[in-house]
């Protein structure tokens, strides 16, 4: 702490006539100055690269901005156009179907998997590691593997199902048929998001005191009763957090649909993000693209509101 002591000495001797350096140091050592100073880089980043682009997105959505040509203010014309557009209407429908089904599966399977992982296994660490892997690997790359698994001709899913006698050959062309394509992208989303759910719910399970279960057992509760009246109520806060997180990130998903279907067949798997990409970048219509991606905002606002209002208060 040699430097520190010298600083104090310098400050001490400087009482008579503090040098500019010592005064600057004294100023910097004040809690609020230091506090603001440390937060400044992060704040600049958020203002310049998050808040400002968000403002730009709003401006774009109100103008006829195309790639390479600065646009004119057109008011709500973009919104009127897309709201009347069948592809967009389909995308709204797709987004809600995709998000609600995928999140529902992740909740049920995630809680079930967490309860299984909570047991004492000999290979506990190995099993947890394996189960979490889909969440860690680049989604775009694992989705490539899924795409190949759902191939129109060589699908391993169909091959297996035919051999097991579940379906009759040749089996569905997964990514070429509306309902099947939606089922496929939901399956991949669940596959990727399930570990996140399971690991966080598991952390919630670990924090439940064992005495509650023992008390319930003494009262003669069945295992379903214990789950229903002990586990579930105590997991509620953790479940709420993880459901909100998962909802916003499922709703805004891009990778899986972009890689597997590009929104097809006939726009039946488009989500807001993939449609915004297609219109704004492939089509060059930044105004409409921005307007489409802004439809993610109400969902974000709702999630933020719920998080701040109910969860962080505890």
């Amino acid at each position: 702490m040699a430097v520190g002591q010298r600083a104090i000495e310098a400050a001490g001797t400087g009482v008579a006539r503090p040098g500019p350096l010592a005064r600057a140091r004294e100023w910097w050592e004040q809690e609020h100055v230091f506090g603001y100073g440390l937060i400044l880089p992060a704040l600049l980043l958020i203002v310049c690269l998050v808040a400002y682009p968000f403002g730009m997105a709003i401006y774009f959505s109100l103008s006829d901005y195309w790639v390479g040509s600065p646009g004119n203010f057109v008011g709500l014309e973009n919104f009127r156009d897309i709201l009347g557009n069948e592809v967009f209407q389909r995308t709204v429908y797709n987004s809600f179907v995709f998000t609600s089904i995928a999140v529902a599966f992740k909740i049920v399977l995630g809680v079930w998997l967490a309860m299984l992982l909570f047991r004492n296994f000999k290979l506990k660490r190995l099993i947890r590691g394996a189960v979490l892997l889909p969440w860690v690997i680049p989604t775009a790359l694992s989705t490539l593997a899924w795409w190949w698994m759902f191939d129109s001709l060589y699908s391993v899913v169909n091959w297996t199902a035919i051999r097991l006698g579940i379906i009759s050959p040749p089996g569905p062309n997964w990514l070429g048929m509306t309902e099947y394509a939606m089922a496929a992208v939901i399956a991949v989303n669940v596959w990727r998001g399930l570990p996140f759910f399971a690991i966080i719910v598991l952390a919630g399970l670990v924090s439940i005191p064992r005495e509650y279960y023992e008390a319930a057992e003494v009262d003669g509760a069945s295992s379903w009763g214990r789950f229903r009246h002990v586990t579930l109520p105590l997991l509620k806060p953790v479940l709420a957090v993880v459901i909100l997180f998962s909802t916003i990130f499922t709703f805004s998903d891009f990778n899986i649909v972009y890689v597997m279907t590009r929104g097809g067949p006939v726009n039946t798997t488009h989500l807001f993000a993939t449609l915004a990409y297609q219109v704004g970048l492939n089509g060059g219509n930044l105004g409409q693209g921005a307007a489409i991606s802004l439809f993610l905002f109400p969902m974000l606002a709702a999630v933020v509101f719920l998080q701040l209002r109910y969860i962080r208060k505890e």
């Binding site: 230091f34 506090g35 603001y36 998050v50 774009f60 990409y277 970048l281 991606s293 993610l296």
Partner: peptide, 28 residues
């Protein structure tokens, strides 16, 4: 550290944490 506005900054960081990248990729 304790200084005026520290909680608002904390909330701002939290909100930014929840912003999905797909909301901002066009303006960026």
């Amino acid at each position: 550290l304790r200084f005026p506005g520290v909680n608002s900054f904390g909330t701002a960081v939290f909100i930014t944490y929840l912003v999905p990248p797909t909301l901002l990729f066009l303006p960026l």
